[in-house]
């Protein structure tokens, strides 16, 4: 019985990993771009002239075969980092990306020390 389950599991997980798509989802890109003339809306959520233009350009670039990253890089170059909701992981933004995990690590170590303190028995 167990063996059958394990086989089933592997079959499915293979199926699952295989299905990861390679098509770029334009909707996802729009959600990750800020509409510069709106109040806190993404390009996906806005219907302004600006958002429509960006949508056209992004769709064109996907057709040209650009990757998601290249599209973000292009737009950052043109409008600044403000346009992407995901700040690029570079030297400047390393505090943002690494500090949470650093704190997590420190918290773990603190708990560990606290528990270690207790005498045996």
């Amino acid at each position: 019985m167990k063996i059958i389950i394990i086989i089933f599991y592997f079959f499915l997980s293979f199926n699952n990993l295989n299905a990861e798509s390679t098509v770029i989802d334009s909707g996802k890109i729009f959600k990750n771009l800020r509409c510069l003339i709106c109040q806190g809306q993404s390009v996906a959520d806005s219907n302004s002239d600006f958002a429509q233009t960006i949508k056209l350009v992004v769709r064109d670039q996907i057709k040209e075969g650009k990757t998601e990253k290249e599209i973000y890089r292009f737009l950052v170059e043109k409008y600044g980092e403000w346009i992407v909701y995901k700040p690029p992981l570079n030297k400047g933004n390393s505090i943002l990306w690494l500090l949470p995990y650093l704190i997590f690590l420190i918290g773990g170590i603190m708990i560990f020390i606290l528990l270690k303190k207790r005498p045996n028995g």
């Binding site: 002239d49 233009t53 064109d60 043109k78």
Partner: peptide, 8 residues
């Protein structure tokens, strides 16, 4: 279509 505006 406004596409060139993005480039600038």
């Amino acid at each position: 279509f406004g596409k060139n505006s993005v480039n600038l």
